[in-house]
Amino acid sequence: MASSTRDGVETVASKVVGQSRRESLEEFLSDRKIMAFITVVPATLMFALIVAAPIVWSVVASLHSINALSPAWEFVGLGNYVELIGETRFWESFGYNLVWAFSTSVLNTVLGTAVALLLNQNFRFKRILTPVMLFPYLVPSAFFGYIVMWITTQQWGLLNQLLIASGLITSENVVAWFTGDPWTAMATLVGVHNWKFSIFVAILVYAKLQGIPDDLYEAAIMSGATKYQQFRDITLPYIKNVLFITVLLRGLWNFNMFDLIWVATNGNPIDSLITLPVYAYKIGFQFQELGKSNAVATTLFVVLSVVGIIYFKTAKPSQEVRVE
């Protein structure tokens, strides 16, 4: 009897201990600072490893002279940058890069919005046309670039064959899409880029368009608003912020774009059209000057950071349309 009572007391006591332990653990966890620490640290570590470390590594590397074939890093300070600033090719590439990034981003946004507006209408064959339009975006860039390369090949590419068949050009003077004049190459590349990446904008804008109540348009129609006035006064205010975001995202991504350009132009056979990422690649992997290559990459990073900050300060894309 007595022992069992003692056992009972002990069980109760150990339960109490267990309880207080759990309580103190809960108390420990419910401390704001500790909870914040526990939840933020994993993400911060991932960010540091995947994003911050390579940036730091790249910036440090840009201050050294590194030969790809030898492990030695020779500190040269801003030497690589001074060298770059003195190169005509660097400034040319920079110029092409700006034209490229600006024209693709603006056209992506305009064309993407147009596609979204089209998809938002009801028309016949919509169910067939929609996947056809979305398809290029679903294909990986490198694969897409490969298709483009075949289509644009000068002698037997699909594009030139179509133009010959429709009588617009003769087989004697086929268009050198990527191998002739740099601005032709640029225009072709911009066109190809829009074929694929306008769809990105279209998807985001289309999603937003779906959220605009029909009643607003009907109210406007009752007031006698034309299609253009409906777009200007209802659609545009609703999608404005999406457009700000897409311009920013496409701007950043297009500025840094390498894969599509590299593959579509078959490793950039003409030297006249070079964008900065391609230039960085060439310096690094063809001329084996890794330090200088990193200086180009760091320049890209700095330029984009500055543009991004200015953009966020002026456009304020976080201000949403208020919908009650």
Binding site: P213, D215, L216, A219
Partner: peptide, 10 residues
Amino acid sequence: FQSIALYPHM
């Protein structure tokens, strides 16, 4: 309209 349909951004 039933939904009032005021333009939320004006």
